[in-house]
Every structure is written in structure tokens, then in C-alpha cells.
């Protein structure tokens, strides 16, 4: 494996060789300073552990109600999926689907899919469809809004606190834990590194960097 990776910056297109990056350090583009590559400390072990935790808490967040509202003895609670579903039922079908997608389906797929790929990479075992799952994850990232949703729950709680008694339930704590663990796990991963590990594992022939060297002037 060539230690000097050839990379073109995604933001400014500057072509450059990345020297060996020590664990826990990152390489920035020499032209525009954006992040090129990270070599997280602790390999796949740490993100795998954190993502497993995120997965369990995310399951709990979906099984238990998030908040309960109590007005004069009449109480009502909502789950994570209940928010999008409520919009859907109140004649806002498209909006409901958007909310369900960004708060339930995308975050769920991201956590589950990342855990799946990490599992395969950690035990160096080829799982079916790993490549396609990793592809899917790369495209989904901007549409993951569970963290925005938690802030929204807090805003809604304060808004309702004036007119009724609001009780924070297990689901909200679980969701918060899942988000924090998910962010920590993602901080210990690098997509480029994951693609590289996957490629090395599958042993796919790849275009040698040397084929490109011929054209590299500077």
C-alpha cells in the first residue's frame, strides 16, 4: 500500500500528495485549508463501540414516548414517529413524509448502516452489500436532522409549559444519548479511510496512482 495518497481537494480541486498521517491527526488542503483526510485514533474499534451504543439508544428512543402533556387530567404523549405522523394525519401529507424521513428513516438508516459497515470492517469480514450501504450513507448525511429535532422538542416544551404540565419521558433522553454517541462515533471515522479499508478487504484491482503520476507536473 502506497503511504503517499493522491488526493484532489473537493473544494478547490488542488491535486496533492498526502504524506503519512499519524493516528489522531488530519491532513488539510494546502491550497484552501479544507479537510482532506483524517486518521482517527483507535482504528475501527472506537466508532464501532460508540455506534453500537447509539443504535441501542436509538431503538429505545423509538419504543418509548418522548414527552407527555397533561392538561387538567387529560394526558397525551408523542413518540418520535408520532410527530411526522401527526402532520400526515392533519392533511399535510408531504410535510409529514418529510418530517418522518428526516427524523426517523434517515437517522435510523444512518445509524444502522454505519454499524453494519463498521462491523464488517472491524472483523475484516465481507458482508453482503457493504459497498452499496456505504454509498447510500454518503448521500444521506445532509438529510439527517435528529439533532435539529431534539432542539425543536426543547423549544416546544417551553412553549407548552405555560398552559399545561409537560413531562419529559425516557424516549427523549434516549434520543439525546443516541445523538451524542452518534456524533462521537462519526468523529472517529473518516469516509475516505473506510472506502480504502473496504477496497483493501475486497481486493479489487484499482487504477494505480502511478498511472496518474505521469501527468503530474508539479
Amino acid at each position: 500500500m502506497n503511504e503517499q495518497k493522491l488526493m484532489a481537494c473537493q473544494e478547490c480541486d488542488a491535486l496533492q500528495r498526502i504524506p503519512h498521517v499519524d493516528p489522531g491527526r488530519k491532513a488539510l488542503c494546502r491550497e484552501c485549508g479544507s479537510l482532506l483526510y483524517r486518521n482517527p485514533r483507535g482504528g475501527m474499534e472506537r466508532p464501532l463501540a460508540l455506534m453500537s451504543g447509539a443504535f441501542l439508544f436509538y431503538l429505545l428512543a423509538n419504543l418509548f414516548p418522548l414527552v407527555t402533556l397533561d392538561i387538567g387530567g387529560a394526558s397525551r404523549d408523542t413518540s418520535l414517529a408520532g410527530t411526522g405522523w401527526a402532520l400526515y394525519q392533519h392533511d399535510m401529507k408531504l410535510l409529514g413524509i418529510l418530517v418522518l424521513a428526516t427524523t426517523v428513516m434517515v437517522p435510523g438508516t444512518l445509524i444502522g448502516g454505519t454499524l453494519y459497515v463498521l462491523t464488517g470492517l472491524y472483523w475484516k469480514k465481507q458482508l453482503p452489500g457493504m459497498r452499496n450501504v456505504l454509498l447510500l450513507l454518503s448521500h444521506m448525511h445532509p438529510w439527517e436532522m435528529a439533532d435539529v429535532f431534539v432542539i425543536s422538542v426543547l423549544v416546544a416544551l417551553v412553549k407548552m409549559s405555560g398552559m399545561a404540565e409537560v413531562i419529559v419521558d425516557v424516549g427523549l433522553y434516549a434520543l439525546l444519548a443516541a445523538i451524542v454517541l452518534g456524533i462521537a462515533a462519526r468523529g472517529g471515522m473518516d469516509m475516505f479511510l473506510m472506502w480504502e479499508l473496504l477496497e483493501r478487504m475486497q481486493g479489487k484491482p484499482r487504477i494505480a496512482d502511478s498511472a496518474i503520476d505521469a501527468g503530474e507536473a508539479g
Binding site: L69, I71, R76, T78, I151
Partner: peptide, 25 residues
């Protein structure tokens, strides 16, 4: 920062799901 604009939409969703007490509110 774009995704953070969804706060208001989510708040409306949460209120719709929770505040359904008929004539009271």
C-alpha cells in the same frame, strides 16, 4: 447551517401531535 432552519417545522409537528385536547386546546 441550512438544516437548522427545520426547527420551526418540527416544533409545529410536535405541537400538532401533543396539543389535541378538543375544545380546551
Amino acid at each position: 447551517v441550512g438544516r437548522w432552519s427545520m426547527v420551526d417545522v418540527f416544533v409545529i409537528g410536535i405541537l400538532t401531535a401533543l396539543v389535541q385536547m378538543g375544545a380546551i386546546s
